[in-house]
Design a binder for these strands. Structure first.
Ligand SMILES: [Zn+2]
Ligand SMILES: [Zn+2]
Ligand SMILES: [Zn+2]
Ligand SMILES: [Zn+2]
Lengths: 173, 173
DNA sequence: CCTTGACGGTTACACTGTAACATATGCTAT
DNA sequence: ATAGCATATGTTACAGTGTAACCGTCAAGG
């Protein structure tokens, strides 16, 4: 209750909750709740597989590969062929409930779905944690550079690899 | 350490040369010359396969997949198995003579090798051109966000998809 | 000469992603 | 109600991307 500054932070929206100690159960519960709300608002069908896939992503503060998600889905009685996972993940990404981490060929739950945001990802190379941070400032800078050469940005991915606070202290060198 | 700024000299990649009309032969010739210089300075062995792989990348202002490069290498009498291309490309990337475009699983020649730089890529979804631009401002913004959550950035990839000037005018919308 | 190490060639395989088709389910129009 | 349609989930089979491991060549050095 006390230390979670994770909820809405309209303008800057940066939280990187994954790097701070927090009540992780809330990540799952609130994540699902936000998704339900978005689905209701936008008339999306958050079916069993899709919901479970999102839940699987929410349970990890790292990016999961499609086949990792697939294994867990299969263990829960869903199909065990690749398209099962890819379709669920594509749905989540398309509707902003999850993000694809290009660098890892993997997926992570969106921490702030529903609002338009230009997320940015911080990937710890030591513990594999992935945090979503607010990329408004970065996006603005990017648009600036693009404008100088006449390029119109539609989508952008910004991914940084490095060390999270915990692993830095642990001397991840 | 977080001092990754590109040298402030003029005429550098900032111009996103790929999007402007230019004498393309010079791209290949000067690109190879720059690579030779870097190799000489740093004691790298720019062998035949590696040089040819770089030349192949320089001839295109788009990103080429490893297997595309492999086809061309094979056509020139080099090996026709994947590791041939991957090893050459890994070498080029590792020494800053080429970059990997995560979003496309592809590679592109570096337009400004030798200097430490934080490149940023503009990818046209209509004509597939890829331009390398100067990412210093973006990188600075990124470092700022990362610092706020205690994350130490080591490497970052910034890739934007959209429309290049030409395709915008052509109504690529 | 013989070793050493980097390089480039090979085979074989692992991982990631998709096309195409079949079945179930629920909504709509008659 | 029921026929028709769209969506979603499941399947098989395959395409695309990337690596591990091994082997012969060749240059440098004892
Ligand atoms: Zn959590
Ligand atoms: Zn970490
Ligand atoms: Zn050119
Ligand atoms: Zn274009």
């Amino acid at each position: 209750m006390s230390d979670v500054r994770e909820s809405a932070d309209p303008g800057q929206g940066l939280t990187a909750a994954a790097f701070a100690p927090h009540d992780h159960k809330r990540c799952r519960v609130e994540g699902l709740a936000r998704a339900e709300a978005v689905a209701a608002t936008e008339g999306l069908r958050l079916t069993a597989v899709r919901r479970r896939a999102l839940e699987i992503l929410l349970e990890a503060h790292r990016a999961l590969g499609a086949y990792e998600v697939l294994d867990r889905l299969a263990a829960d009685g869903f199909g065990r062929q690749p398209p099962v996972a890819y379709r669920a993940l594509d749905f989540l990404v398309e509707h902003g409930l999850a993000h694809r981490i290009q660098r890892l060929n993997a997926y992570t739950a969106c921490m702030n779905p529903g609002r338009r945001h230009a997320p940015l990802f911080l990937i710890c190379r030591a513990c594999n944690a992935v945090a979503e941070a607010g990329g408004t400032r970065v996006r603005t800078a990017l648009e600036g550079v693009a404008a100088e050469v006449g390029f119109a940005v539609e989508r952008a991915s910004v991914e940084a690899v490095g060390l999270c606070p915990a692993c830095r202290q642990a001397g991840g060198a």
